[in-house]
Design a protein around this nucleic acid. Structure first.
Length: 497
RNA sequence: CGGGGCGUGGUGUAACGGUAGCAUUCAUGAUUUGGGAUCAUGCAGUUCGGGUUCAAAUCCCGGCGCCCCGACCA
């Protein structure tokens, strides 16, 4: 077989989702200019456009937190190794994946290279999460019931030396937000835990256009050191589940380990009740996996750094000056009236090239303006999600912009929701269960007796894990899909990222 | 950490042990401009260290790096 040499292969194509889902994911990241690989294995360089999405996420969540009375602070990157050992379960959970600093300078090795010198008396670990250092601090900040509740959040980077990494979904270093709160009693701490997971759910559904299932993690999946963990789980286009956020009730475990105590109204010493909650740059991975298509990234308008791009057409033609000045005026007008970031792309490129450029980057609306439009007193709107083009009269542009953005936001959500519903199953025997996991995947609701042994065995034999015990689990008597033991409701199984 | 694969311009690829070539990106100029344009000119390469050989991108040994699959995980 000979290749057709005349075939134009000017631009690297995005692998289709059906052909190779993992490759498609990487191709989209590259095509949309979100990230670059790093010289260090498993780390990731977030490029300006990718970071702009993170800034959107940051700003929206930060506002939400502040509405809840949460204050931002910053704690050190380095944690004394001994801190990690104070909470037994916590050390067990993170010891396998921490980076450790043992030296504080370099000196010549005599062969033109360098070797570490100045060994530290106590090794420092690079935070994989900040519970230990924050609660050590809390023990000094909290003395009285009047100091409670203490609601702190930090935006930071953390390092977890994972074996296998994937851009955004799991990188050695990642950016996140971790909230840490201390309360006077269990009720208040529980309320906080649930409030934050609801905030995450709202963020995911309202801004990311991503429907999620909120629920509890099982004992074996919960955060190391927590009483219990709540999470939101989202379905990706390959039927796998992605944990998009977590909120933990830490109880008094860390309080006892770090002596975070206070005197109550009666003058008695009590340990605080704590919570922690976080989301990470992984959300960008979720965004890609949930909405994007074979042409590239698709962004929900509420999180698009550039919701609208205007492309003037006819460069080099006599009336281009007119087109351009018209486009400029329109761009200013839209951004003034809608408060949106509008990009006018007047680069010296052919229109087709610009169309593809912005399409790959997921910009929700493209407005084309050319000589024809000027004559007809109209512009052309092109939607990223459906690809539809529509002619819009100039006096309707503002209204149509708002409407279309709202519509895209809504329809992305509905599309993701109906995909999830279509791929949610209720299964009662192990053979069908296996078949589904190996085949189309998706969320599988099945009965489970509650034992960690069964959970582990199911994972081993099928590859699916319990993603969560949904909050809205219906009472329904059934038999464990593995051992046949008694169950009072279904839990959600899936393969996960 | 176990199993498999791969290292050639920035990227993607070719060369029996014998002149490192093609495409693309990028730069410059011209023509072009309602869906990835064309032509011309130019810049740029064998992962590293040993070995075999008259001769190594090619064969052998080792290092390093990357990718995929598993276990672990936001």
């Amino acid at each position: 077989m000979q290749n057709n040499l005349n075939e134009k292969t000017t631009e690297k194509k995005i692998t289709s989702r059906s052909e190779d889902y993992s490759q498609w994911y990487l191709d989209v990241i590259e095509a949309a200019d979100l990230a670059d690989s790093s010289p260090v294995r498993g780390c990731m360089i977030i490029k300006p456009y990718g970071y702009a999405i993170w800034e959107k996420i940051h700003d929206i969540l930060d506002k939400k937190f502040k509405q809840q009375g949460v204050q931002n602070a910053y704690f050190p990157l380095f944690i004394p190794q001994s801190f990690l050992t104070k909470e037994a379960k916590h050390v067990e959970g993170f010891a396998k994946e921490v980076a450790i600093v043992t030296h504080h300078r370099l000196e010549s090795d005599g062969h033109g290279g360098l070797k570490p010198a100045g060994e530290l008396a106590e090794p420092l670990i690079i935070r994989p999460t900040s519970e230990t250092i924050i609660y050590d601090t809390f023990s000094r900040w909290i003395h009285s019931y009047r100091d409670l509740p203490l609601l702190i959040n930090q935006w930071a980077n953390v390092v977890r030396w994972e074996m296998r990494t994937r851009p955004f979904l799991r990188t050695t270093e990642f950016l996140w937000q971790e909230g840490h709160t201390a309360h006077k009693n269990k009720e208040e701490a529980e309320e906080m835990t649930l409030k934050m997971i609801k905030e995450y759910q709202d963020f995911s559904e309202t801004y990311m256009a991503l429907p999620v299932i909120p629920g509890y993690k099982t004992e074996s999946e919960k955060f190391a050191g927590a009483d219990y963990t709540t999470c939101i789980e989202a379905m990706m286009q390959d039927g796998k589940s992605l944990q998009a956020g977590t909120s933990h009730l830490l109880g008094q475990n860390f309080a006892k380990a770090f002596e975070v105590s206070f005197l109550n109204e009666k003058g008695e010493k009590e340990y605080v009740w704590q919570t922690s909650w976080g989301v990470s740059t992984r959300l960008i991975g979720a965004l890609i996996m949930a909405h994007s298509d074979d042409k590239g990234l698709v962004l929900p308008p509420n999180l698009a750094p550039i919701p609208v791009v205007i492309i003037p057409i006819g460069q080099g033609k006599p009336d281009y000056e007119q087109v351009l000045s018209f486009a400029k005026n329109l761009s200013v007008k839209i951004s003034k009236e809608t408060n949106l970031t509008i990009n006018l792309d007047d680069r010296d490129l052919r229109p087709g090239e610009k169309f593809f450029y912005w399409e790959k980057r997921g910009v929700p609306i493209r407005i084309e303006i050319g000589p024809k439009d000027l004559q007809n007193n109209s512009v052309v709107f092109a939607r990223r999600d459906t690809g539809e083009k529509a002619t819009v009269l100039i006096q309707d542009v503002i209204l149509k912009t708002r409407e279309t953005l709202n519509d895209i936001q809504k329809s992305l959500y509905l599309k993701a929701e109906s995909f999830r519903n279509d791929n949610t199953h209720f299964i009662d025997n192990l053979a069908d269960f296996k078949k589904m996991v190996d085949g189309k995947g998706g969320f599988i609701n099945s009965h489970w007796c509650g034992s960690s042994e069964c959970e582990a065995k199911i994972k081993e034999t099928t590859g699916a894990t319990i993603r969560c015990v949904p909050f809205n689990q219906k009472e329904e008597v059934g038999k464990c899909i593995l051992c046949g033991g008694k169950s009072n409701g279904r839990v959600m199984f899936a393969k996960s990222y």
